[in-house]
Write a protein that binds this DNA or RNA. Sequence first.
DNA 1: GCTTGTGAACGCCTTCACAGCA
DNA 2: TGCTGTGAAGGCGTTCACAAGC
Lengths: 211, 211
Amino acid sequence: MSELEARVLPEATLARLTQYLRALNALDAQGLERTSSGVLAKEAGVNPSILRKDLSWLGSYGTRGVGYVVRELAEHISRTLGLNQDWRVAILGAGNLGRALSGYAGFKSRGFNVKAILDIDPALVGKAVGELHVEAIGDLAKVVQREEINIAVLAIPGDAAQDLVYELAELSVRSVLSFAPKPLRVPEGMNLRRVDLSTELQILAYLAVQG
Amino acid sequence: MSELEARVLPEATLARLTQYLRALNALDAQGLERTSSGVLAKEAGVNPSILRKDLSWLGSYGTRGVGYVVRELAEHISRTLGLNQDWRVAILGAGNLGRALSGYAGFKSRGFNVKAILDIDPALVGKAVGELHVEAIGDLAKVVQREEINIAVLAIPGDAAQDLVYELAELSVRSVLSFAPKPLRVPEGMNLRRVDLSTELQILAYLAVQG
DNA sequence: GCTTGTGAACGCCTTCACAGCA
DNA sequence: TGCTGTGAAGGCGTTCACAAGC
């Protein structure tokens, strides 16, 4: 890794980098200033080889024979992941899941601020959810603009999700996390990740029968 | 695929099979009796090659030149995934996320019945959550036995998760879905899957900066 | 002719093993 | 000596392309 050109991290690496960051923060909280690939890998739940390989995508930030400086490495990963930016999240769907997500502590602590929650049901509009009030999906464009939303979370049951993806794309929201059970098509340039809770349980069920 | 021996499906295949099942049910609901790998793959959001490859793990259930019988294939996948069993779920943690999950419609419709919800906070014990009442984590053994729980969902913030995994293992609960941010160690023979919401957002953040 | 089922090719990701360097 | 950084090897999963069969 010594090219000038910025290159895209493999997605598997990306997912692990977030774990290293969490692990580094944990070590820092314990007062440790230095660490090694062995210690860090254990804390992150991976093997040391892949950890070093992953870090090599970012450049050389360790010292041979010694290890890594905890805060320095954390800062570097953080910058690589774009976490020094201000991320402003809108949650679409104010049902149980949407409300739970809007209050999810893990978001705020990692720099993701939930700025709006919206729903299609008029009966919910205006209701308080934490420090927010539910707004109408019909006002999506207005809300996205007002709050400068750059990430949307789809916490709605089903068929409306696809239309919202296109609408979000037109509003220049380029990152979407979907909890909808169906796979969604995304326009060029938009990033979508999906969490499918039923699928997770189905996989567990199979493994339980199997194992 | 023509061996006698039962073999374990690759996990990637497993995840897609659940999608094919959902897609088949959607086609069935539309009144379609037959389908092809092309149609089904589109509905499931994958390419036809991998779909046929995945199905080949289960044996030959299609007809060359014709396609698949929707209900027959659905039934076969369903059986392979162990979904004809009775799955009884306990949710550990009655915070926002736990309560949201306990009411998640996608579970019940796919044969997963939430039979209990527990929390460590005495102030929550006894409170109603849907048709359930929150029970004390201290009573976990009793609850698991009484309700014959075979899947547990960990919807608790952090450090208590690891201990609960071991406790569940001793109670013979062999499948766990964790929402805890840390990777957890699991005893031999236990299956654990993790959903890390913050990681998902961090990946999206990186992709948004990148793209 | 049309669609399945599958070996072979390909590409990505992980693991190994060791050279490089404090 | 000890740990990082990395080329090479290995393994896994996807895509290709076509033979098999209705």
